[in-house]
């Protein structure tokens, strides 16, 4: 549906000029290679209480690797509630959770309109499933809480003009970030949860070069690898050792159950690493 309420940008996509870097060696491979260890996530910055008008809020930033070839991820999350529901809403014994994930129009190379597109709605559904398991919902009957996440800068490679649309692998990274930042904001809003909840991504990747066999890495960046074979994003409750949301995607032989389990395990590892930052951040706020 067309957005008629705002002045929109031109309908046809315009390609931003990509200038050749003077310093870049012509022979240099345009792909950057992964310098982190296979089990290391990128550096995270997390801060709560950034939006004073909201009941709870948090800001998350993931460092941009590879000297600016890939933009980092910047997320801001606000939590409004618990608040009473409008009169017309029927009785609910639980808190009604609604989640919105929205890319800012300028977040990626491809402009996002103001209306949420199906991909953003899909992310919202994933986030809802992840958070609903963590919130102790029956402590607030007849009330609602809104979790609103704006992705200020999306994880996207800046150099290649090949992938115009947001690749599906980037959305997994974005979802993991959304889960972590939402958990911090929920804690900031003082909404009771069974545990902190952290998101992590693991992927089975194939690196450039002939002799490399596929390996599992955490926090993958598509540009760093030749090809991503499959990936999974988990929402994990660390102290309870439970998964509230699991999203796996790719192409794995069904006979190789071991590989799948390993991938999920690695995803949990990634979530645990993110949780360290989350807990540290919450401690800081308390103290």
């Amino acid at each position: 549906m067309a957005d008629r309420r705002r002045i929109n940008g031109p309908a046809g996509a315009t390609l931003p000029p990509v200038y050749l870097n003077e310093d870049a060696q012509p022979s240099d491979d345009s792909k950057i290679s992964r310098t982190r260890a296979a089990n290391a996530i990128r550096k995270l910055y997390l801060k709560t209480g950034v939006t004073p008008s909201a009941s709870g809020s948090a800001y998350l930033e993931i460092e941009a690797p590879g000297g600016g070839a890939v933009s980092g991820l910047k997320l801001s999350c606000t939590v409004h509630g618990p608040r009473s529901l409008p009169r017309s809403t029927p009785f609910s014994p639980h808190i009604i959770l609604s989640t919105h994930v929205k890319y800012a129009p300028f977040a990626t190379k491809q402009r996002h309109g103001y209306l949420r597109d199906p991909m953003e709605r899909d992310l919202g559904t994933h986030l809802e499933a992840a958070l609903r398991g963590a919130i102790i919902a029956d402590r607030w009957p007849k009330s609602g809480v809104d979790v609103i996440i704006s992705i200020i800068e999306g994880d996207q490679d800046r150099q290649t003009s090949k992938s115009q649309e947001l690749g599906s692998w980037e959305t997994m990274n974005a979802l993991a970030g959304c889960i972590t930042v939402a958990s911090a904001a929920l804690a900031d809003a003082g909404i009771d949860c069974v545990d902190t909840i952290a998101g992590g991504v693991a992927a089975l990747v194939k690196d450039a070069g002939d002799n490399n066999s596929p390996r599992i890495v955490i926090d993958p960046i598509p540009l760093e690898h030749e090809k991503i074979l499959s990936a999974c994003c988990v929402a994990y409750l660390p102290t309870r050792d439970e998964v509230t949301n699991l999203w796996f995607k790719g192409d794995l032989p069904a006979s190789d159950m071991e590989l799948y389990t390993q991938l999920v395990e690695t995803g949990i590892q990634a979530a645990k690493s993110a949780n360290l930052v989350l807990v540290e951040c919450l401690h800081e706020t308390m103290g």
Partner: peptide, 15 residues
Amino acid sequence: NLRLLSVRTIDPPSR
């Protein structure tokens, strides 16, 4: 030759 393509958690209405 079965292949695993995708897994998604469905938010169970039991909650």
